[in-house]
Amino acid sequence: MYRFLLSRRWLITLLIALLLIPATVRLGFWQLHRHEARVDRNELIARSLAAQPVAYDTLSSGPGFAVPRDLAWRAVTATGQYDPEHEFVVRKRTDSSGDKIGYFVVTPLVLADGRGSVLVNRGWVASGTSATEYPAVPAAPAGQVTLTGRLRADETATGSLKDRAGLPDRQFNLISTPQQTRETGAALLGGYLELTATEPSPADQPELLPEPNHSDIGPHMAYAIQWWLFTALIPVGFGVMVRREAKDRRKEAAGTGAPVVAVPV
Rank of each mutant, 00 (worst) to 15 (best):
L188V: 01
A232L: 15
P219N: 09
G191E: 00
H220I: 06
W227I: 00
A222L: 15
T196K: 12
L229N: 00
H220G: 05
F238N: 08
Q205M: 13
L195G: 08
M241L: 15
F230G: 11
P178S: 03
T184L: 05
P206H: 06
L209D: 03
Y223E: 12
A203T: 03
G239D: 09
D204A: 14
S201Q: 13
V240T: 13
A246N: 13
L209S: 12
T196F: 04
R243Q: 08
P219R: 07
H220P: 03
M241S: 14
K247W: 13
R244P: 02
E211R: 13
P202G: 05
A186W: 03
L208Q: 07
H214F: 04
G190R: 09
R243W: 13
A203F: 01
S176A: 04
V240S: 14
G190D: 04
I217K: 09
K247I: 07
Q179M: 14
L188E: 01
K247S: 14
P212A: 05
T184N: 06
G185T: 07
E194I: 04
A222S: 15
P210I: 05
V242D: 07
A246W: 05
P202I: 11
P206M: 12
L188Y: 09
L195N: 07
A222W: 13
S201T: 12
T184A: 07
D204Y: 09
I217P: 06
V242L: 08
P206R: 07
L208R: 11
L188Q: 00
S201I: 06
A197P: 01
E207K: 12
P178F: 06
Y223N: 11
Q205A: 14
R182I: 04
L208Y: 07
D248H: 14
S215T: 13
A186G: 05
T198V: 15
E207R: 13
T231F: 12
A246T: 09
D204I: 09
G239I: 02
W227E: 00
D216H: 11
L233N: 02
G190N: 10
P202Q: 08
M241N: 12
V240W: 15
P200L: 09
E199F: 10
A186C: 02
P235H: 00
Q205V: 11
L189D: 03
E183P: 02
G218T: 10
A197R: 14
R244M: 14
L193C: 02
P212E: 02
L208H: 08
V240E: 12
A224D: 07
P178D: 01
